[in-house]
Write a protein that binds this DNA or RNA. Structure first.
Lengths: 336, 336
DNA sequence: CTGAAAGCGCTTACAG
DNA sequence: CTGAAAGCGCTTACAG
């Protein structure tokens, strides 16, 4: 086993209380004793066990945050909001970045047994039924951000409405053939899908229906990875066909930026040859003059952290579900 | 105090071992007993203490990462690299985002006393002498990324050379009046400054000297915040004067993007009216066609995490300092 | 299937 | 200034 305080005490010829006092920089230690203890610590390479240390004192709470790739600006912004709140109130913020459904399951397995954290925030997904049951059983509160779930603390936006707003805007600009690019991600159960993106698709279809237009299956394509490159690829598959759309609605700004790149490479003028609208309003949407549907990303994280913290402290929750507002932001990519 | 396993045991009329078995989903519990325990847990709102739990088992290690704002893509990329390595090898990743020198001190104070983590990674700074001493005393290994420190595990780039490369490139393009935008940040000691940016300034001066040009003090300006807006503001202060530079070297891509925005707003053609080069090569530099000096950001994080993990496991370190390569990337913002 | 007891590695009064 | 002892809240053999 590792070196413990007993080993140090023995090596220094003192009691463990004295070692502890040195460790905690108590005044009441004779300088020579102190030196001997420090020497023993150094020689043995002793490292106090933080767990044991915190067990005998007020101690810190920890909050786990499970999210997808750190390359996704949306998720980073949500994390930022969570961090803002937590750094004020106190608990450690443990980040679990998920790169596969398998890792997600493994982590949830450990977390749901109470092995690691005192509270959990999931970004853009919710734990499956089994994990949920155990989390409940162990009284570990869970908040989900960017996901709606009646059983959990949840902070979300109305993605159906978001999809509707974006599409209606394009229709109002006179477009009749509008493409939709959706991204898919691996789900906890191993399947693929993306609830928010699905909802936005529904809003897209609503707007088309309202305008009396049919939904054409070949105008809806999927991007498999979250990246500009993938957005460009999806745009290509949409535009390099006989009857291409005149406008594209991408379910994230990142994908939309890829479309803009594609358009630039092909010499297409935006928005005349091709109008583009995204979703999120990430920092760089302004830079790229990209129209989009703004989500209050940082606020999404802040609210989720606040709800969770209240639950962790056993405070009454005035509400367990918070819907955040969405806003259409029109820039040059749709209205030159 | 909080509800403990003893309270649950008493309420359920069983021993604590049985409660523990239920908690750990052991087979050897009679269904009825199990139900009674679960009921007690629910009624009392009992939450197992993760610290105590891990104390009596192999247990997880934790690594703390201290970094600046999560709005800085460079830092996020480094974090991403750290996360990649750590998620493979095992320890929890605890993120401490620093928004003030005061918070940084407070956190370092706790961490350096061994209260929270088993290892520490600092991004773009190093702990001050006092903290360093305590971290050593408690045998908590420390790695710094994007910072060079002979006493710590460090992974860094040669920023002087980076500044030199960027500036020489501009000189080669025929520019003679070259501005430099530097950002400052609050330091642990409360002072302001930014080592990497200072080093790049030095490289800038070297290149000018080599070309036989004087360093003009009014061509070097400071940005106070890390943002595009601040980059635009700095560009304005540089360009709205009698004898403006024909090229600007910004110490980060984010600032450089602000310069490009400024140029666009003013109707300046890039690179003919104004050449711009940044630093980092963040994801969006490609999108913006921004020339830059590429840092291996993710790799910087990966290496730091690897060095730290080796130290935490007591493995011999083949080297305590790793210099990562820098690369000039020429795009349209300097070479139309 | 179940409980009493020892132990995880510390901290902290309590006595000296 | 220093040490023996109790206690932090769990888990895990060990007996039954």
């Amino acid at each position: 086993m590792a070196v413990t305080i007993y080993d140090v005490a023995k090596a220094a010829g003192v009691g463990i209380s004295t070692v502890s006092r040195v460790l905690n920089e108590s005044k009441n230690v004779r300088p020579e004793t102190r030196q001997r203890v420090l020497k023993a610590i150094a020689e043995l390479g002793y490292r106090p066990n933080p767990l044991a240390r915190n067990l005998s004192r007020p101690g810190f709470l920890s909050v786990g945050v499970m999210l997808g790739f750190l390359t996704n600006p949306f998720q980073v912004a949500v994390l930022h909001g969570i961090q803002q709140v937590l750094s004020e109130v106190g608990p450690n913020l443990i980040v679990y970045s998920i790169d596969s459904a398998e890792r997600r399951e493994r982590l949830l397995h450990g977390i749901s047994q109470g092995h690691r954290v005192d509270g959990l925030i999931c970004v853009s997904f919710a734990p499956g039924p089994r994990h949920r049951q155990r989390l409940r059983r162990y009284n570990i509160p869970v908040a989900v951000a960017d996901f709606r779930d009646p059983e959990l603390l949840s902070v979300y936006v109305d993605n159906v409405r978001g999809g509707y707003l974006a599409t209606r805007h394009l229709l109002e600009q006179g477009h009749r053939r509008i493409g939709y690019i959706q991204d898919v991600q691996e789900q906890p159960n191993g399947a693929f899908g993306n609830r928010p993106a699905q909802d936005r698709l529904e809003g897209y279809m609503q707007a088309l229906a309202e305008a009396g237009l049919p939904v054409e299956a070949d105008l809806v394509v999927q991007a498999n990875v979250f990246s500009r490159a993938e957005g460009a690829r999806a745009a290509a598959s949409l535009l390099e066909r006989p009857d291409p759309p005149t406008a594209i609605f991408a379910c994230s700004d990142m994908l939309a930026l890829g479309i803009l790149e594609y358009a630039r490479d092909r010499g297409l003028t935006v928005p005349d040859d091709l109008a583009v609208i995204g979703f999120d309003d990430i920092d760089l949407a302004t830079f790229a003059d990209l129209s989009t549907v703004r989500q209050p990303m940082v606020e999404l994280g802040r609210q989720a952290a606040q709800l969770l913290w209240q639950a962790m402290r056993g405070q009454p929750l005035e509400s367990r579900a918070v819907e955040m507002p969405l806003e259409l932001v029109v820039r040059r990519s749709t209205a030159g």
